[in-house]
Amino acid sequence: METLTVLTWIFDSLLAMGLLWLAWRCLTCPDLFNAIVLFVAFGLLMALAWVRLEALDVALAEAAIGAGLTGALLMAALAKLQSTKTNRDIAEKSEKNVTGVQLLQCVSIALLLLVAIGLGYAVLSLPAYAPGLSIEVSANLETSGVSNPVTAVLLNFRAYDTLLEMVVLLLALLGVWSLGGAIQQRETTPGPVLDTLSRVLVPVLILVTAYLLWVGAHAPGGAFQAGSVLGAAGVLLLLAGWRPRGAMMALPLRLILVAGLIVFLAIAIAIMMIERQLLEYWPAQAGVLILVLETAATISIGATLAALFLSRCPQVEEYK
């Protein structure tokens, strides 16, 4: 048993040092493509760190969103950057102003150090064992309608957090759309390999989405993890050259994007009308309500993430 503790200690130290080293390399790497690859590697190690901390829900979300989808989004952004000439102009402008940039770097490093010192102090001044609200959560778990405490907190006790996260995601997409997409998306014909891969993987990904959504009630999983897997299926289809056509891009897509939010708000308002608090479910119906909410949220999250990857606001007129 003794050697096992030493081994896990060595593993954890290597993991922590690897994370710091990858973060440093990612920030200082001059080549953007390499920086993205380092960022994805950082995300995967971060997911491993969450597993070591026994936070499997966070680990799943980190692996799917932090490493996977964010990596794909960054790659798409890089491809756009390289196809415009403006980045060369920006680089030339910044070269003229080297001292200003260096000053800015010094100031931001100083501020970051201050934040790090503050965080370190806060962590060290915590009591050795702080249960937080976990006792209250486990005491009320029976009334929440699910047996996974993370889902109970995210979809019942603090459901308004998830409600606001849905708003944030929608705002992010609106931000990307309003920045406009001057670049025409090329219709690409995929090679046979990518074509076959997408045909095999997309059904599997949809199945995994449903599994994660369902299993979230009693084990690690849930709407965000399931939604990111669904989003990954969308990204794979877009990469393989699939483009949704015509009428699909008009009202239906927009309805799917806001479906999660609409269902959330409808349930919240309905509950408030019947003299209860915002999103305070009845214990008997809580499980069903959570499943309905999570299903709508999963579909919206998946569609939003895929739309973020497409990045251009679909113009309805083009297809008429």
Partner: peptide
Amino acid sequence: MLAGASVAHL
């Protein structure tokens, strides 16, 4: 295996 082989090809 499926993903690895396909991505290596790509």
